[in-house]
C-alpha cells in the first residue's frame, strides 16, 4: 500500500444521487445480499471492494436493474435515484438504464464499427436528429472516453479489432454517449494490462467531473487510487462504508482491516 497519495484529497459534501435502504437480493434460495444500506453521492467515485462472491457485483447490478435479466433473482428494499424508486412498477428498466449506464468486466464491444458502437445508444434513445448531430455525439463520447485520438481515423473499423484497453475505453465511451447520470463499472480493469488500467483509471477520475461513478474492483490499490468513498462487502453484508482514506488507513471493523491487509479474501 504505497500508493495512498490520492487518499488525502479533500472530500466535499455532495448531494446524494442514489439512496439504497434495507436491500436484500436472493438467487433462488441463496441470500446473496443481506440488508445493505449505501448512499451514492453525485460527482463522486464510489468503490465496492470485497473478496470474490461477496455480492458486490450483484449489488452493482441492482442499481440499474440488470438483475432483472437473471432468472430466479429477487430484489427487495428501496433503491432511490434522485428520490424515485427505481423498482417502482411504473419504472421501465430501459429508461432507467439510459440514466444509469454500465461498463462490464470483459470489454464487450458490439461486432460492429467503432462509430456504430458509440452511436447505438443515442440512436435507440433518439438523441440525434441527423447525421451531423450523431457525429458530434460520437466524437464527444470518444473524446471523453480518452480514445478519440487513437480511433478518429478508423471509425469504420470494427470495434472488436481494437486492443483490450482500447476496447474497454470504447465501451466506456459507448456508455457515456447516452449521457447517463450514474456510471456503473463492474471490474472494468480486470482484463487489462497495467498501462491500459492506468489509462482507464485516469479516465474514471475525469469522468467524476460529470458523473457519479460506482466501481467494483478486486484491486484495493485501484480503489484507493480512484475512489473517494469505499464500501467493503463480505459474505453478502456491507461491513463498512465510508471515506476511502478512512477505510484504508483507519478501518473501524476488524474484518475490513484483515481484508485490506491481506489476511482474508
Amino acid at each position: 500500500m504505497n500508493d495512498m497519495s490520492r487518499v488525502e484529497r479533500a472530500v466535499e459534501i455532495k448531494q446524494t444521487k442514489m439512496e439504497c435502504r434495507d436491500c436484500h437480493v436472493y438467487y433462488g434460495d441463496t441470500h446473496a445480499i443481506k440488508n445493505v444500506n449505501v448512499d451514492i453521492e453525485d460527482k463522486t467515485v464510489t468503490a465496492f471492494i470485497g473478496p470474490s462472491g461477496c455480492g458486490k457485483s450483484t449489488f452493482l447490478r441492482c442499481l440499474n436493474r440488470m438483475n432483472d435479466t437473471i432468472a430466479g433473482a429477487r430484489v427487495e428494499g428501496s433503491f432511490m435515484l434522485d428520490g424515485e424508486d427505481i423498482y417502482d412498477k411504473r419504472v421501465d428498466p430501459v429508461q432507467l438504464r439510459a440514466k444509469v449506464g454500465m461498463v462490464f468486466q470483459k470489454p464487450n464491444p458490439f461486432p460492429k464499427s467503432i462509430y456504430d458502437n458509440v452511436a447505438y445508444g443515442p440512436r435507440i434513445h433518439g438523441l440525434a436528429r441527423n447525421r451531423a448531430e450523431m457525429d458530434e455525439i460520437v466524437e464527444k463520447a470518444l473524446r471523453r472516453g480518452a480514445i478519440w485520438d487513437e480511433v478518429k481515423d478508423r471509425l469504420d473499423a470494427p470495434g472488436t479489432g481494437l486492443s483490450g484497453g482500447q476496447q474497454q475505453r470504447l465501451c466506456i465511451a459507448r456508455a457515456i454517449a447516452t449521457e447517463p447520470e450514474v456510471l456503473l463499472m463492474d471490474e472494468p480493469c480486470s482484463a487489462l494490462d497495467p498501462i491500459a488500467t492506468a489509462q482507464v483509471e485516469e479516465l474514471i477520475d475525469e469522468l467524476r467531473q460529470n458523473y457519479s461513478v460506482v466501481i467494483v474492483t478486486h484491486s484495493m490499490q485501484q480503489a484507493a487510487r480512484v475512489s473517494q468513498k469505499t464500501a467493503f462487502f463480505h459474505l453478502g453484508q456491507l461491513v463498512e462504508f465510508g471515506e476511502t482514506g478512512q477505510i484504508f488507513t483507519n478501518p473501524e471493523d476488524p474484518r475490513t482491516e484483515s481484508y485490506i491487509t491481506g489476511r482474508i479474501g
Binding site: 440499474n64 440488470m66 435479466t69 430501459v94 429508461q95 438504464r97 439510459a98 449506464g101 454500465m102 461498463v103 462490464f104 470483459k106 464487450n108 464491444p109 458490439f110 461486432p111 447505438y120 445508444g121 435507440i124 434513445h125 465501451c171 459507448r174 456508455a175 454517449a177 447516452t178
Partner: peptide, 27 residues
C-alpha cells in the same frame, strides 16, 4: 452468442427486443 453482447445492449438502455433483434439475431 455470448451473453456479454446482450449485457452490452441492455447496458446502454436497449430493450430486450432491441437487444435481440439488433445484436443477437444478426450474430
Amino acid at each position: 452468442v455470448p451473453p456479454s453482447i446482450r449485457d452490452a445492449a441492455l447496458g446502454v438502455g436497449a430493450s430486450k427486443m432491441q437487444a435481440v433483434f439488433h445484436h443477437v439475431l444478426p450474430l
